[in-house]
Design a protein around this nucleic acid. Structure first.
Length: 444
RNA sequence: GUGGCCGUAGCUCAGUUGGCAGAGCGCCGGGAUGUGGCCCCGGAGGUCGCGGGUUCGAGCCCCGUCGGUCACCCCA
């Protein structure tokens, strides 16, 4: 039996991995101009970091966490999400507030894989700690929205809700519990049983039974205390002014217990599959305290890279094409000359590859063609004797040219015979990357 | 965790009432003396996921198992 990646995990190979590179660079650029700095935290944490923050009763902690004991008997867990570790890092190091950080990380959940759902997936996200200001909520939400749009996405929706705070939520939960208690037999088995632990979950349930039973349930937004109501109003007004379209969704509860006030979720409308949530987040004003820090508000979002790219595929946007090689070296005269020429090209900053194993010229040229290089540099017995190299364009049918060894690097660099100069070194995104003319082959 | 569907070459798949394991693409080589793509010829590559059963005989039928995939729940 050949070895293979564990269930629910996947490899990202070239050229798809190039797309990931460009995506990460784009995200970094997008959030760093807004003052967010990259933070790396461990891929596993003391399991209590998640139990306390996300909540024992949540699905993610209760049945999906990858928990293990290390050789020293410590209870650890692979991170199921990005926020709790970042907040743990804040509590431990106490950087100055406001603390604005971003991350890119794998996340692990033991679930049955399906389209758009993995046991190891990858998230991009930001966290902003300190301000209670509703304008920070607006900043964080619009940052995600504008990032999606910068990739070319257009078919997605944003839903927002307010979860209230310690002041108003307990009273609302009692009201909801009373309402649902009278309809307990109508709820689906799972949420009927969990009604006492967390009745909010029933609002989020998609089963028709729960759906019907919660139809006329009181909405949290109608029971917010004055500060929470004012906060929510200002968030909505800010999004309106910035032109970020959204819908209020009273059922939007989300699966982590730490959320307070603003919660939000982005869904692709282009994805056919069931898992169409491409990003989500919310405010977590109590989380820092739960992890042993001083009362400190915070808000953040996470974006699922795999789902985001699936959504891009569905919309036909964010097509990142790796830059072509500048040259491919073919040597049928012993190999020394080709070896040295390849090294010289690379030292000069050009993208160059070559053939190995002394194959026939036909074979080497075939490899040159497949490589996507703009030009083949051929060294045979004649060139070796004359101290020259033959430049053969590969992207169009023009003639070839003989250049002295000393002039080869400059000839490739200047794009002689090629109809264009050498390719750029780093990919770009958005309009540039989605425009085939900008990243496709060149030539007359 | 539950359910549907599917496991044949590197990839996509065909394989008739059970009777010699195939195609396309890809890969390697060749098409005279030094030239890629298009075309032509040839070649390599398989424990038919694995284990049992039925049968003279199983890729095909039966049971189990593992894997993949989609869906539920939940989430990125």
């Amino acid at each position: 039996m050949a070895a293979r990646a564990p269930s629910g995990t996947h490899d990202v190979l070239w050229p798809e991995s190039y797309r990931w590179e460009v995506l990460l660079a784009a995200f970094a650029a997008h959030v760093e101009v807004a003052g967010y700095g990259l933070a790396h935290t461990p891929i596993f944490e003391d399991a209590r970091v998640f139990r306390r923050g996300i909540g024992d009763g949540s699905d993610v902690v209760g049945k999906e966490m990858y928990e293990f004991e290390d050789r020293g008997g410590r209870a650890l867990a692979l991170r199921p999400e990005g926020t709790a570790p970042m907040v743990r890092a804040y509590v431990q190091h106490r950087p100055a507030l406001p603390w604005k950080a971003w991350y890119a990380t794998p996340a692990f959940r033991y679930e049955r894989p399906q389209a758009g759902r993995y046991r190891q997936h990858h998230q991009l996200g930001v966290e902003a700690l300190g301000p209670e200001d509703a304008d920070l909520d607006v900043e964080v939400v619009s940052l995600a929205d504008s990032f999606f749009r910068s990739l070319g996405l257009a078919s997605f929706g944003l839903r927002i809700n307010s979860m209230g705070d310690g002041e108003c939520r307990p009273a609302y939960i009692e009201q909801l519990r009373t309402y649902l208690d009278q309809r307990r037999d109508q709820l689906c088995p799972e949420h009927g049983a969990r009604l006492d632990a967390n009745p909010l979950r029933a609002l989020d349930c998609k089963r028709p039974a729960c759906r019907r039973a919660t139809e006329g349930a009181p909405a949290l937004a109608d029971h917010l205390c004055e500060p929470c109501r004012a906060h929510f109003d200002r968030v909505r007004a800010g999004l309106d002014v910035l032109g970020v379209p959204f819908q209020i969704d009273h059922r939007l509860v989300r699966g982590f217990d730490y959320y307070t006030r603003t919660t939000f979720e982005f869904s692709s409308e282009a994805l056919e599959s069931a898992q169409n949530g491409i990003g989500g987040g919310g405010r977590y004003d109590g989380l820092v305290e739960m992890l042993g820090g001083p009362p400190t508000p915070g808000i953040g979002f996470g974006i699922g890279i795999e789902r985001l790219l699936l959504a891009c595929d569905a919309e036909g946007v964010f097509v990142a094409t790796p830059p072509a090689l500048d040259a491919f070296v073919v040597d049928v005269a012993g190999g020394e000359s080709g070896r040295d020429l390849t090294a010289a090209l690379r030292s000069a900053g050009l993208r160059a590859d070559r053939a190995f194993d002394g194959r026939s010229m036909k074979s080497q040229l075939k490899a040159a063609d497949r490589s996507g290089a703009r030009v083949a540099l051929i060294v045979g017995a004649d060139e070796l004797a004359a101290g020259t190299v033959t430049l053969r364009p590969l992207r169009h049918s023009g003639g070839q040219e003989t250049v002295s060894v000393a002039d080869v690097v400059e000839a490739v660099r200047s794009g002689a015979l090629l109809g264009a100069g050498p390719s750029g070194s780093v990919g770009s995104i958005g309009a540039t990357a989605t425009d085939p003319a900008a990243s496709g082959p060149v030539g007359p």
